[in-house]
């Protein structure tokens, strides 16, 4: 084929099998491209780049450890290592808050695309959650640094970590599907969610222990999904024990429940998105 003039680029008939993915396989490539895009843009023109994903949780942990160590170590002596306790909670919390914050606005931000190309709309909230998971994996390097600093060893229970992250991811996908569809119809949801996240963060034992809470609060804590996910991760990595049937079951239950609700709302409303974005 001559390449001299562009019009001579003859229409090369490439049949479906060569040029296009079958419809069912397209979404994965799109999701991968979008996650890559977010990743590149997040650290473009930043000197430390990806190191921020590691530094951020480390710095946060240092501040909290400096402020709360004396308070906590006195009130709950069962915490084997407070800095590790902190960083495990913070990173898992950031995964959820980053995922839902960005997932919530994903449909609104993808408006120009949604008006142009036929594409499965769930791709956008799911992609944002997966991007948050990628960041979480990098922040695990910070966890490793802290563990190494204290000479912390891992037990075989640590192998359950991917499972815990998977549950949390499913939970976040459900929540993001729900929030992204609500945000399309009512932009207030975006502001409201900021408030909810802050309140929820204080209600989750990230930098304190559940044992300092009054009994009634401690007893409803098992209905706080984030408490369950964080407990799962802390138990296998910090206490080096089994997550426990109740916690494990709760993690799965909340993940499936949230996914079910999110999916149902999303499916019911997605055809009307285009009229509101």
């Amino acid at each position: 084929m001559s390449q001299n003039t562009a019009t001579e680029l003859a229409p090369k008939k490439i049949k479906d099998g060569d040029a296009w993915y079958p419809t069912s396989q397209r979404d994965m490539f799109v999701v991968r491209q979008l996650v890559t895009k977010d990743f590149k843009l997040k650290y473009r023109r930043s000197v430390l780049g990806i190191a921020w994903s590691v530094l951020n949780p480390l710095l946060m942990m240092l501040v909290q450890a400096a402020v709360f160590t004396r308070l906590m170590v006195r009130s709950d002596t069962s915490i084997p290592n407070f800095p590790i306790y902190l960083i495990l909670g913070n990173t898992a919390w950031s995964l959820m808050s980053d995922a839902t914050r960005q997932g919530m606005e994903s449909i609104i931000h993808a408006q120009s695309l949604l008006k142009k190309v036929r594409i499965n709309r769930w791709v956008f909230p799911v992609q944002k959650v997966l991007f948050a998971v990628v960041n979480y994996t990098f922040s695990l390097a910070a966890v490793a640094v802290v563990m190494a600093a204290f000479g912390w060893t891992l037990s075989p229970w640590a192998l359950l970590l991917p499972l815990g992250v998977l549950y949390l991811t499913i939970f976040c996908i459900g929540l993001s599907l729900l929030l992204s569809s609500l945000a399309v119809f009512f932009r207030d949801v975006i502001h409201l969610w900021g408030v909810v996240l802050t309140a929820w963060m204080y209600l989750t034992p990230l930098f304190y222990s559940v044992s300092i809470l009054p009994d009634w609060m401690a007893s409803i804590m098992r209905f706080n999904p984030m408490y369950l996910y964080i407990t799962f991760i802390r138990r296998i990595l910090l206490w080096k024990m089994a997550p426990g049937l109740l916690v494990h079951g709760g993690c799965i239950g909340f993940a499936l429940l949230m996914l079910g609700i999110g999916y149902a709302v999303f499916r019911k409303t997605e055809d009307r998105f285009i009229l509101f974005i």
């Binding site: 296009w20 993915y21 419809t23 397209r26 490539f29 991968r32 594409i119």
Partner: peptide
């Protein structure tokens, strides 16, 4: 080009 190709449904190799 890669992002848009993906959105059109093109294969990466293509």
């Amino acid at each position: 080009i890669y992002l848009n190709g993906a959105l059109l449904g093109y294969r990466k190799e293509f």
